[in-house]
Computed example of a mutant assay.
Amino acid sequence: MTKLLIAAVAATIAFVAPATAKERVFTHEGITYSYTATPSANGVVLEGQASKGGKFRLVVKGDWVNGYAGGARVSFRAPKREATVQVAQR
């Protein structure tokens, strides 16, 4: 369960906008995740709960994510953001 939680939250890290702490909700493989993203001196803090798997608290700083998910300590490289390609129309 922890691996699924990590994968789902990691999939959304690229979309975290560290502007304000507002609750975000998404569903991945039938599990609903509710969390807040709060900027801090240590990076962006993602805190929330999954409908299955329990609570999580992750800190995203640079290329790394550290914290706890489902009671287990986790640390992994943050997913790279996809580069936006703009095509000029002639």
Rank of each mutant, 00 (worst) to 15 (best):
R57V: 13
A41G: 04
D63Y: 10
V60L: 14
A50S: 13
G70H: 01
A78R: 09
K55L: 07
T38A: 14
R90W: 10
D63C: 07
T20N: 06
T38M: 11
P79L: 10
K52H: 05
R24D: 08
E82P: 12
M1G: 07
L4W: 03
H28E: 11
Y33R: 00
D63G: 11
A37Q: 06
A8P: 09
V74I: 12
W64Y: 08
E47Q: 15
R77N: 09
A69S: 12
A83R: 15
V87F: 11
V74F: 09
I31Y: 06
G30N: 10
E82H: 11
Q89S: 05
V25R: 09
V60Y: 15
G48A: 08
I31N: 02
A88H: 05
G48M: 05
S34N: 09
A8I: 10
K80H: 07
F56V: 00
T84F: 13
G53V: 01
L58C: 08
V85K: 09
A50I: 01
G54H: 01
A21E: 11
A14F: 06
K3A: 12
W64C: 03
E82C: 10
Q86S: 05
V85M: 03
G48W: 09
T2S: 04
Q89C: 10
M1W: 02
Y35H: 09
A50F: 01
